[in-house]
């Protein structure tokens, strides 16, 4: 990796100041950024290590929502009694991200801020209609994910926590890329106070909502209801591991499995 300055601020305010440098980068678990640095694909002037900021940690129930601090590691979400009780599909998802090493280091805030199309958490955030808390505002999930590796976050804005409304029921299923084990096609379904939401990750360049499936499930929450809904292949990813048509097919398969998992 190239040389960079290293900062470890203790408060969000200090971190925001340090990130005023447009070439500085925030780092939490480092599971995406460190490999990129090692491959010299990224040349930040400074790394702003968020791991010393206490206010970014912790899982708590607030009203009818679970609020998860940005620095919360996947293993903590997977094993949290509160998450397991309130949103078991989210705990299940966390428990199936990457491998043990990734789950022990990777953080929710890092994953969601990075918005890798093949990451898991964006599907839960969008599927549950979560609210993103940042250093300066709150952003609805529907307004947050803008495109491949692109979010509504401003350069010096830090994701501080994610507020997940507790759904009536939710489920998640994914097909993994055989090589990387990232998501090749995943579907998160949720029956929430605000209606049925279906989010698709892995298959396209950015997580997206599947309106036809939402309508079908709103009318009839069942595996059969989504079985007949076909995902268009037009804008989906195509690579050496599978065509857009294959991914489109998998979206329906995973939707069925997600609904079955949700019960």
């Amino acid at each position: 990796m190239y040389d960079f300055a290293y900062h470890k601020p203790a408060t969000v305010a200090d971190a925001v100041k340090l990130l005023a440098d447009p070439d500085a980068k925030a780092i939490s678990g480092g599971h995406t950024l460190l490999p990129a640095l090692k491959h010299r694909l990224n040349k930040p002037s400074a790394l702003v290590d968020l791991s010393g900021i206490a206010e970014l940690k912790g899982i708590r129930k607030v009203g009818n929502a679970i609020v998860i601090g940005a620095l919360t590691r996947h293993v903590e979400v997977a094993t949290s009694a509160e998450v397991k009780a309130a949103i078991p599909a989210l705990a299940y998802m966390a428990d199936h991200i990457g491998d043990v090493q990734v789950r022990n280091r990777g953080t929710m805030g890092g994953s969601v801020s990075n918005n890798d199309p093949a990451a898991d958490y964006p599907a839960a955030v969008l599927g549950l209609g979560a609210t993103i808390h940042t250093s300066s505002r709150k952003i609805a999930a529907d307004d947050f994910f803008l495109g491949m590796f692109t979010t509504a976050l401003e350069p010096s804005e830090i994701l501080t926590a994610i507020e997940f409304p507790i759904p009536e029921k939710a489920g998640y299923a994914k097909m993994k890329n055989p090589a990387s084990r990232y998501v090749m096609a995943g579907v998160f379904v949720a029956k929430t106070a605000g209606g049925v939401r279906v989010a698709v990750n892995g298959a396209g360049p950015c997580v997206f909502r599947q309106a036809d499936m939402e309508a079908a499930l709103a009318a009839n929450w069942s595996v059969d209801a989504v079985a007949g809904v076909k995902q268009a292949a037009d804008d989906l990813n195509s690579d050496i591991h599978g065509s857009a048509e294959y991914r489109a097919h998998l979206v329906t398969v995973m939707a069925k499995r997600a609904v079955a998992a949700a019960g």
């Binding site: 055989p178 090589a179 990387s180 990232y182 050496i240 591991h241």
Partner: peptide, 19 residues
């Protein structure tokens, strides 16, 4: 192992080569 028509190695890391 997959090369594209220009001879670029597409399966050039563990992300794409399935061990």
């Amino acid at each position: 192992c997959i090369y594209d028509a220009d001879g670029q190695l597409l399966s050039g890391s563990m992300m794409d080569y399935t061990m």
